[in-house]
Amino acid sequence: MALLQIAEITKEFGGLKALRAVSLHLDEGEIVSLIGPNGAGKTTLFNCITGTMPPDRGSVRFNGEEIVGRPPHEVARRGISRTFQHIRVFGQMSVLENVMVGRDFRGRTGIFSALLRPPRVGREEAENRERCLEVLALFGERLLPRLDQPARELSYANRRRLEIARALVSGPKLILLDEPTAGMNPHETQQVVDLIRLICERGHSVLVIEHKMKVVMTVSDRIVVLDHGEKIAEGTPAAIAADPTVIEAYMGGRRRAQAD
């Protein structure tokens, strides 16, 4: 059974159909890329999955359970975490605190235990910190030396890394990455590709929106192509690379491409 089963999702903004009856599935342990020209509906699809913007019609089943209509924090609790296309780190909080927020829902400390401080609060905090450090260690020397720095002072690439760390730390079954390599140089991009593979090896499934073809082709098990809110193709990287409809969507018509 598929880990994520999206069926016939439709989302409209006024007259604009952002998604038209899109269906796709993702199996456990898979890396699936979602590609398509700007405005194809990729981020909207992410928003529909995570509950940020529920779809008008259609269903999203995660682990066999319907998650449409659930608020985002419940979707996250069920094991889907995400990063954002426009980075959303908690600017004034330190790097470590940012990541610790990612494990908030695994915590048990409420108002009263925070005030009375039974020993388990300290244990929970220490364990939380430990696990955050482990995740931050995935990024080598990028984030670990900057634990106490406010997130807004980080470089662009490091803020992207921080978002990924925050999404990873709760141990999600599925992680949605929205353009994780945007604004990164080739060297940093390569590191992200390695990281995505590593994430997958560690037992998370990955759905990634990506524009850089090199990344898409090297990292994905399967590729899903969206254009104008419709799924126009799906398949292995090799099959997609040869698919005429995809080339048409991307290059704006075959004839013109041949004429050049």
Binding site: H73, F90, A114, E124, E125
Partner: peptide, 24 residues
């Protein structure tokens, strides 16, 4: 100084991201 305060600050810094990371 603990989970509660971190969550509140995260909400201030970016409510959408906090919600998406599982903060109620």
């Amino acid at each position: 100084d603990c989970r509660f305060g971190r969550a509140l600050t995260a909400i201030r810094e970016n409510e959408l991201a906090a919600e998406a990371t599982g903060v109620d």
